[in-house]
């Protein structure tokens, strides 16, 4: 099979590392060759963060380039817009709609674009948008936005729910497991 590409984009500190770890674990157990590329260090301090997950028969490059992503999983709508040019023709966006103002917006040097998700949809891009923060809080923690999004993403894969749950069990500390399972299920059903 041709290599499939998933980009996870968001704001440093939103938990993209757990999302990529979980996807990597799941895809490897499904027998694929997998590469995951992460961002550590300076960029994690509230900056724009991107993680690449690639899988297939044999994966060479660890990163995803413009026009290549089958999925952009976005923790924050502005970040979906920022990385939009990386989406493949007919690619799918799965995004949280809860925005976080970047510093240039906070200081008044720039404006947060209005109706950003609608603007992406107007381009004919397949966009699945949901308020992950609200769902995560209902599930028990605002920090579970990442797992809510993964739950939603699971719609687009043929994997069994039990396989996703196994990956959750392998990647999430035991004391947060139940909350995360709930967040995943709520995301999947949203």
């Amino acid at each position: 099979m041709q290599t499939k590409n998933i980009m996870i984009v968001g704001v440093g500190g939103q938990g993209s590392l757990l999302a990529s770890k979980l996807l990597g674990h799941l895809l490897l157990t499904k027998g694929y060759d997998v590469k995951v590329s992460e961002v550590h260090g300076m960029s994690q301090r509230g900056g724009s963060v991107v993680t690449y997950v690639r899988y297939g028969d044999k994966v060479a490059s660890p990163i995803i380039d413009k026009g290549e992503a089958d999925f952009i999983v976005s923790f924050e709508p502005l970040e979906a817009a920022r990385w939009l040019s990386y989406l493949k023709k007919d690619g799918q966006i799965v995004t949280n709609i809860h925005g976080i103002d970047p510093m240039p917006v906070i200081t008044g040097a720039a404006e947060y674009p209005e109706n950003i998700v609608d603007r992406i949809k107007e381009k004919g891009v397949k966009t699945d948008a949901l308020d992950c923060l609200e769902i995560a809080q209902e599930a028990g923690s605002a920090k579970a936005v990442n797992v809510v999004l993964l739950g939603r993403l699971s719609h687009y894969f043929d994997f069994e729910e039990s396989e996703w749950m196994e990956a959750l069990e392998a990647c999430v500390p035991a004391k947060f497991l139940e909350m995360n399972k709930k967040a995943f299920e709520m995301g999947a059903k949203a």
Partner: peptide, 27 residues
Amino acid sequence: QGLVAQTLGKEVAEGPSLEVEIPGRPP
């Protein structure tokens, strides 16, 4: 890979874009 492809004369993909100024998000 895009840079290598472009430099050595292979086709590169392009994705959609918005006509909107996206504010930067520095650390």
